[in-house]
Amino acid sequence: MAFFAGVFIRETGVRMKISRLLRQLDVPLVLFVIALAVISIVAISGATYTIDPVYLKQQIYWYGLGILLLAATLLFDYRVLAQGRFVYLLYGFGLFLLVLVMIPGVGTSAKGAQQWLKIGAFQFQPSEFMKLFLIILLAKVTSEVKRLPIRDWKTLGKLSGLFALPFFLVLIQPDLGTALVLLGIAASVLLVAGLDWRIILAGLSSVTVLVGGVLTLYFTDHPLLHTLLQDHQIERIETFVNPASDPSGAGYQLTQSMIAVGSGQLSGKGFHNGTQAQGKWIPEPHNDFIFAVFAEEFGFIGGSLLLCTFIFLLYRMVKVGLQCEERFGAYIVAGVIGMIVFQVFQNIGMTVGILPITGLPLPFISYGGSALLMEMVAIGLVLNIGMRRNDEFLFRD
């Protein structure tokens, strides 16, 4: 009888704790994700209305699977990820997939880059999942640093090595956009963790010199530029600097995108009435240039509402990070925020011509399974951290 009484008391306590955790769920954050899902479905419907309805059906399917993964992510205590060497196993598995994708006959190519793996009818992009693995690993390593700010060379060397491996593996695919996202993730985690200001200044100076050097080589037409960059990357610089120089060639994507965004004016042309999208003028309308389609159909008002939704989503995540009393969780939130901010800024920036085209999708909006599933798991982790920000391990004795 005492045994059954003990089991009943324990199970009752666990149920009460689960109930309390669910009451701490960040409902506004969930609602903003749902709002982005609705916008994604509307935007993809507009982008593929005259192309192929299968994209819309697939996106709804991916969102359904993504919601299940998000819910599953809430079921465990996120702090178990920092126990033992589990994070290193995830990281090693991600590196293995990145190497595997480079093997001829194993990885498949798309848009000039070999970055996909195909298992039966299912095709996925390992670099997308590497983003999340890198966030978790960097959060673990930086949370174990005893003295802040981070300035000792041993810690910096370890962090640099952990970042450099996936960065260069992605870069040689070649996938510059995703490689830059990994850089944004690392910068976000390290800034929040507390990097010495002299190192930050040195990093900013290096980036300035690198960008300035590439632009100098470009404007002087130096032969070294063709050694450092591939032809399509040089074309993207040309498109960014002067999109009107070749509107039917290298500048075609940006030209058509800017026409679509501008023609939307204040309130847009209406759902399924975008002439650039329905006329099939916009390349990759359901993926890289989805914002141009949405802005053409719903105008400045629609585009602003989309940006505001992202801002509120990020605000809720920042709030979770600030309220988290445990460094590992706070650093994970910082990495997720950095990942989303960089991709939103880069995607919309390239769509309107203020940044070079890198082929990055718009988070939660663009069509695609790998990216969307990874983003939903990332949001699930943030919600998990928010639910347990000042709680003990759920099943600890």
Results as ranks from 00 to 15, higher is better:
A260Y: 00
P126V: 02
H272P: 00
L74V: 04
A5G: 13
N273F: 13
L360I: 12
V192W: 08
R316W: 05
I290T: 13
L56A: 06
Q115V: 12
F312D: 03
V181R: 03
F163S: 08
V7E: 04
A295V: 07
F86R: 12
L306N: 05
L100A: 15
V352G: 00
P243M: 02
P28R: 06
A186F: 15
P356Q: 07
I135W: 07
L229D: 00
R198C: 00
V211E: 02
W153D: 11
A72E: 08
G279P: 13
F122G: 06
Y367H: 10
I185Q: 05
P247H: 04
P174F: 01
L31C: 12
L74R: 09
F3E: 13
A193D: 01
L98K: 00
Y55Q: 04
F133W: 03
I348W: 10
L134F: 12
L360R: 11
A202E: 09
R15Q: 09
Q59W: 01
I199F: 08
T216C: 08
L90F: 10
I41D: 10
V87P: 04
S263M: 06
S245K: 14
M1I: 10
I44N: 02
W116Y: 05
L305A: 14
I150A: 04
F219T: 15
V181T: 14
Q253N: 15
F129T: 06
L81R: 01
W153K: 14
L180C: 07
C324A: 14
G107S: 10
L132D: 02
D77G: 03
F129H: 06
L100T: 11
V181D: 06
Q115C: 07
W197Y: 14
W116S: 06
F4S: 11
Y367D: 07
L171T: 01
A330Q: 14
K158I: 15
Y315I: 13
G368H: 13
T50Y: 12
W116L: 08
Q83N: 09
L322V: 09
M16F: 12
Y88S: 07
E128M: 03
L190E: 05
A378N: 11
R10W: 15
T50K: 15
V99C: 14
G66Y: 08
K319R: 12
F289D: 01
Q173V: 03
L169Y: 08
L190K: 07
R10H: 09
V14K: 15
V293E: 09
V318Q: 13
A295S: 15
S267M: 14
Y252E: 01
G262R: 00
F300N: 12
L138I: 03
L372Y: 05
A110R: 11
E325Y: 07
P166G: 08
P166T: 02
G157T: 06
R198S: 01
